[in-house]
């Protein structure tokens, strides 16, 4: 099918949807200012960050068939690495013999590496099993890290850790919301390009094969464990980078970054947008976070103040309906049959 659309080279519905989405996100700060809603820029920075975490989950969930329910762990670890390094830089102290830093290049690279390392350990253990075991185990290990950070009193424990400001990226002023938005935008686009190439590469074909029929892949001679673990680590690294960006966005990290509901939210974003599509999770992040932002206001304005705080009361059943009746996700609805990769 991919061969086919490639050969045609014509503008398909999918490319049209993608182009439209790209332009919309690229022009968003301008649109926000025209609408006189400048806070939307910061809100959408969050959307892009969540999208990145969701795309990284889609890589293993949608393409590798690994139902990881602990993806927030890597997001949170990435965020904490940035927070902890900034904390030590502010205090002038060291951690494990290393000085703290506010330099984005160092701090974010560390976040990616540490998240990847954590993913390697959790993945190596969890991938010894599959199915329901895998779901429960990834959830449990994420919960373990949650409790670990809760118990780390030097880094604020339950209350989390404030940062003095955003990291320093080659002297660019990241405290400006517009600048920060475009940083997130570039990071997400780069990550999408990377994952797009990845899922179509030889490596990507192997993990997609594993999702469809692992036994067959083994009989063809692929050591599937190694390939799945590698994908798991790459996804962990991507979530770690998203976490690093998130810490910079809020200038704050707390155990909530690793809470299991965060893992649930990331998974919902993937499903809502369309699993196994890479672009779907971006759509999912936009819709999910906009619902979170505006559903309470909508309830308020139609006189249902009672539901304002309890928007999830409605969202729960919506999620169930999506799962039962709309498995293609929003991107599938928008882009049609070619949305999903085989």
């Amino acid at each position: 099918m991919a061969d086919h659309s490639h050969r045609m080279g014509a503008i398909t519905r999918k490319t049209a949807v993608l182009a439209f989405g790209f332009v919309l996100l690229a022009a968003l700060p301008g649109i926000a200012h025209l609408m006189d809603e400048p806070f939307l820029v910061s809100t959408f920075s969050r959307v892009l960050i969540y999208a990145m975490a969701a795309v990284s989950l889609d890589l293993i969930l949608g393409y590798g068939g690994m139902v990881s329910f602990g993806h927030a762990a890597f997001f949170g670890v990435g965020a904490y690495v940035v927070g902890i390094l900034a904390h030590h830089a502010a205090e002038g102290t060291t951690v494990l013999g290393l000085a703290g830093t506010n330099l984005a290049v160092v701090s974010w690279a560390a976040a990616v590496l540490v998240s990847a390392g954590v993913a390697a350990v959790i993945g190596a253990l969890s991938l010894r099993t599959d199915g329901v075991h895998f779901i429960m185990i990834t959830l449990a290990f994420a919960q373990m890290l949650f409790f670990l950070f809760v118990s780390l009193e030097p880094y604020g424990g339950d209350d989390g850790l404030m940062m003095m400001g955003r990291n320093d990226l080659f002297g660019i002023d990241l405290s400006d919301d517009m600048t920060f938005y475009y940083l997130c935008f570039i990071a997400l686009m780069a990550f999408l390009l990377l994952t797009r190439r990845l899922v179509d590469s030889r490596f990507g074909m192997v993990i997609r094969g594993c999702k469809q029929n692992e036994r067959r892949m083994r009989a063809l001679g692929f050591p599937v464990y190694r390939y799945k673990l590698t994908a798991f680590v790459i996804a962990g690294a991507g979530a770690g980078l998203a976490g690093a960006l998130s810490a910079n966005h809020t200038e704050f990290v707390s155990p909530d970054f690793l809470h299991w509901t965060m893992s649930g939210d990331i998974m919902i974003i993937v499903i809502l947008g369309g699993i196994g599509t890479l672009y779907g999770p971006v759509v999912g992040a936009v819709v999910f976070l906009m619902l979170e932002e505006f559903l309470p206001l909508a309830f308020d304005s139609v006189g249902l103040e009672g539901l304002k705080e309890h928007w999830r009361f409605l969202f729960g059943p919506i999620l169930i309906l999506v799962v039962l009746f709309a498995r293609r996700g929003l991107f599938g609805l928008l882009a049609g049959r070619e949305a999903r990769d085989g």
């Binding site: 139902v67 699993i275 999830r312 729960g316 059943p317 999620l319 169930i320």
Partner: peptide, 13 residues
Amino acid sequence: LDQVLATFGLILF
């Protein structure tokens, strides 16, 4: 995956 998501929806509810 479907079971996890739908029952997660029940928790929210």
